[in-house]
């Protein structure tokens, strides 16, 4: 028996979009100008996470939820922070002592950049 985590991943669109926005803003300096690309990249990353083996995908989604809630001390979820402050939070996770937290950030850094530039090439931007 095997199953898909697609529904779970899609229901976390805002959280994943928030992280993607940070990654793209580092590529372009101005994510506001790239809203369409942020959404396209997010949808592609959602497809990629959904295609992971379930035991990896569930782990990734647990980390997405954890990241989202890691800003609650400031009264909001991470996706509601400004891009700059979300970036600061992501940098903290990048330096975290726990391997899974660092791997989580590495995934978005690398795959986010790869997907973004792939989409740009396809759109001939």
């Amino acid at each position: 028996m095997s199953f898909s985590i697609k529904g779970l991943v899609e229901s976390n669109f805002d959280a994943i979009r928030g992280i993607t926005e940070v990654v793209i803003s580092r590529e372009t300096g101005a994510a506001e100008d790239q809203l369409e690309m942020v959404d396209e990249t997010t949808l592609e990353l959602i497809a990629r996470i959904s295609a992971m083996p379930p035991h990896l995908g569930f782990g990734m989604m647990a980390l997405v939820r954890l990241f989202e809630s890691s800003a609650l001390a400031s009264g909001v979820v991470a996706s509601s922070l400004t891009v700059v402050n979300r970036g600061i939070l992501l940098d903290r996770w990048r330096r975290a002592p726990l391997g899974p937290a660092r791997d989580f950030v590495t995934f978005f850094d690398k795959m986010g950049a790869f997907v973004y530039y792939s989409k740009c090439e396809a759109a001939d931007v």
């Binding site: 580092r26 850094d109 690398k110 795959m111 950049a113 790869f114 530039y117 090439e121």
Partner: peptide
């Protein structure tokens, strides 16, 4: 080494990353 592959393997913290790419 297409552009997307370079973006993937070029570390996120490379100074002047956008310019380099």
């Amino acid at each position: 080494s297409s552009l997307p592959h370079l973006a993937l393997w070029l570390g996120h913290s490379v100074p002047d990353r956008e310019e380099k790419l």
